[in-house]
Design a binder for these strands. Structure first.
Length: 678
DNA sequence: ACTAATGTCCTTTTT
DNA sequence: GGACATTAGT
């Protein structure tokens, strides 16, 4: 062993060292929150490389691409081969690795390598089209909406379950439609194949199916000497099957996870994967990391007290050598406005003490929970970046722009044609159908659109579109292609939207992003698979002086840590979400979600809840109700916290909500609302 | 053939 | 306040 290797090992505790230096064979690392999991994985990669494993024979599967990049660059820094490790090792999500493998092996499984990837919105639209074609939309009894249809489909696929079981268990109100759904799903699959598109679930499914072919399984499995999987508690059964299939040659697989942090069962993730790992991979060595390096002891005391309520639990309590620090605060706020004010004041106070904004984060259950706080931050001129919720790529104008590239890349992509042609006046579903048939007759040459039949008003536009698509097909750099699209599309943005300037700026950002990609194909696919998750990802390399407060859903905060964490809306109905309070299992997951939120904090933890909140639903607008604190903050948990009551905010005449000014409106509305509901 | 207006139901987390 | 179907209008 080289001397260097010994030196890094000194930086690890005994359990971490055992995991890092584990040799051949399966390894399961149970890593509690903040126990140095990232470091352990990164060092293990470094260790493998120092032992002579070529970087390109290591596969690191993570939850986000950013996580993979971070670990690989840390590994590179340790072994002093920064470039080679990051560029040569395979790293990314299951979905992005599937994409890469499928492009290469498409031929072997009868898939055409120029397939395009559908994101969730695309997939919903497509299943909606099929739903409509089957005449399921107009029935006296309401057929589930397209998002629900896709949800059911996805659950069946990812959970490897049977349709009747899925319906009975998760969608009981839809059970009468079983036969129609089965038909819908069959037609949806056929349609995807005809359009040469894969949805997210297909990426995993095709990968798994490839592994079911012995010869292919040997070839794929033979690509890697070691496979490491992070966040294993949040993988689903298809992913577990893939992992098994990828280890036919040897059993050098490392899985890392923490069942107390499993928060993706809505995506068919199952803790069974981590529990069954030793059975799936006989001879597994299990290493448990329990020493927390992140949080102060008072914060861990609160987190431990909270997770103690979990009925099923395998990991132990965390402990820390960081005894100092104040108890976490549980803050009762009169209403949402005072919650905003309280958080902003605390953030600024810590900022004054020297904690930059970016080392502080506000966490919440649902993306819209931060709406009023965002307004307050904007009003005060405090910069922030929000993670989770509606993303850049999901905005209509960006999807439109990408659709131009998609039709060139994959002229069978009906959804993309629909977006592009739908921009023209007088063009609807009927015209798109005919245009598509016309393009198909021309051997799927996208340029054929120029001569497609269409309403007279759109003739000239179709010809111009034909010229644009022809240019795009000429092998220009991707950024230049985006630029051509932007020039073509800008007039439509101005016509279609009220404030076109911001949207046009987004298109310029898109151009910027495109410059980082070698081909249109990789640009399109990777953008779908690893979308920029916040505005900061778009602005290019951040300036040194830039500082902003982080706003994030708890789900998107997974794996992150901050000096100060504020968990807002810790009221029943928000956390746990009342939509997830239906079954004990769902409730338990909400508890773990809360645990994840608390364990993100290093030095300061503040939990707030507003007593009074305003109804947002129209028929009740103006009325208010009273919240209860989150049921997870029991007496035992509160005992570990300092309790604070925040001051109310006197509403200024201008900024005050309507009902504050008019006093008794809420009562009248309530009385009306009672009858509205009947 | 397509669009605009109207009515009804649901409202989470993400690759 | 959005999604989605239906109906009336261009």
């Amino acid at each position: 062993m080289p001397d260097q290797d010994l030196r890094w090992l000194d930086e690890l505790n005994p359990a971490q060292r055992e995991a890092v230096t584990h040799g051949e064979g399966p390894l399961l690392i149970i890593a509690g929150a903040g126990t140095g999991k990232t470091r352990t994985l990164a060092y293990r990669v470094a260790h493998l490389i120092s032992r002579g494993v070529p970087p390109d024979r290591i596969l690191l599967l993570t939850f986000t691409r950013r996580a993979a990049e971070e670990m690989l660059s840390r590994a590179g820094a340790v072994v002093g081969k920064l470039g080679p490790v990051r560029e040569r090792a395979w790293g990314g999500t299951f979905h992005s690795v599937a994409n890469r493998l499928l492009r290469t092996y498409a031929g072997a499984v009868g898939l055409s390598p120029e397939f395009t990837v559908l994101d969730q919105a695309d997939a919903e639209n497509l299943i909606g089209l099929v739903r409509h074609d089957l005449g399921l939309a107009s029935r006296d009894k309401r057929f589930p909406r397209r998002a629900t249809c896709l949800g059911i489909y996805s659950r069946v696929v990812n959970g490897s379950e049977e349709l009747p079981d899925v319906l009975a268990r998760y969608f009981p109100w839809v059970a009468p439609w079983e036969e129609e759904l089965r038909t819908l799903f069959r037609r949806y699959v056929e349609r995807k194949q005809k359009l040469n598109v894969l949805d997210f679930d297909d990426l995993l499914l095709y990968w798994r199916e490839m592994l079911a072919v012995p010869d292919l399984a040997r070839r794929l499995s033979g690509l890697f000497d070691h496979i490491l999987v992070d966040e294993y508690q949040d993988t689903n059964r298809v992913q577990a099957a893939i992992l098994r299939g990828m280890r036919t040659g040897n059993s050098n697989v490392t899985a890392v996870g923490d069942d107390a942090q499993s928060i993706y069962s809505f995506r068919a993730a199952t803790v069974r994967n981590i529990l069954d790992f030793p059975r799936d991979f006989p001879g597994t060595r299990i290493v448990t990391l329990e020493e927390n390096y992140r949080s102060t002891m008072p914060i861990l005391a609160t987190a431990n007290a909270l997770i103690a309520q979990a009925h099923e639990r395998y990991t132990k309590n965390l402990w820390s050598r960081r005894p100092g620090g104040a108890k976490p605060l549980l803050v009762t706020c009169p209403d949402e406005g005072s919650q905003d004010a309280y958080v902003v004041e605390r953030v600024l106070a810590l900022y004054e003490e020297g904690i930059p904004l970016r080392r502080q984060a506000v966490l919440f259950r649902a993306a819209h929970h931060s709406a009023s706080l965002e307004v307050e931050l904007a009003r005060r001129g405090i910069p922030f970046h929000k993670y989770g919720g509606l993303r850049f790529l999901e905005t209509a104008h960006v999807k439109d722009a990408l659709a131009f590239l998609r039709v060139v890349e994959n002229p069978r992509d009906e959804l993309a044609w629909f977006r592009v042609l739908g921009l023209f006046d007088g063009v609807g579903p009927a015209t798109v159908s005919r245009a598509l048939a016309h393009v198909a007759e021309g051997g799927y040459d996208p340029r054929a659109i120029a001569t497609s039949p269409g309403p007279p008003a759109a003739r000239e536009e179709l010809a111009r579109l034909g010229r644009l698509l022809s240019e795009l097909g000429e092998g220009l750099p991707v950024a230049a292609q985006v630029e051509r699209v932007r020039r073509f599309y800008e007039p439509y943005v101005e016509r279609l939207y009220d404030y076109p300037q911001a949207r046009i700026r987004d298109l310029e950002s898109l151009e910027q992003i495109a410059s980082g990609y070698r081909s249109r194909r990789s640009f399109l696919a990777e953008l779908q698979l690893d979308p920029p998750s916040s505005t900061s990802d778009l602005a290019g390399p951040p300036h040194k002086d830039d500082d902003w407060l982080v706003l994030s859903t708890i789900h998107s905060a997974k794996g992150c840590e901050w000096d100060a964490v504020y968990v807002i809306h810790a009221a029943d109905g928000f956390l746990p979400s009342d939509l997830a309070a239906g079954s004990p299992e769902e409730l338990e997951e909400e508890l773990r979600l809360t645990y994840v939120a608390l364990t993100r904090a290093k030095d300061h933890l503040v939990v707030t809840w507003p007593v009074r909140y305003h109804y947002r639903r129209r028929e009740l607008a103006g009325a208010h109700g009273y919240a209860q604190p989150s049921r997870f903050f029991t007496e035992e948990v509160r005992g570990t916290m300092d309790r604070v009551v925040a001051e109310g905010v006197r509403p200024s005449a201008e900024g005050a909500p309507r009902e504050e000014r008019t006093g008794y409106v809420d009562l009248a509305t309530r009385i009306r609302a009672r009858w509205d509901r009947a």
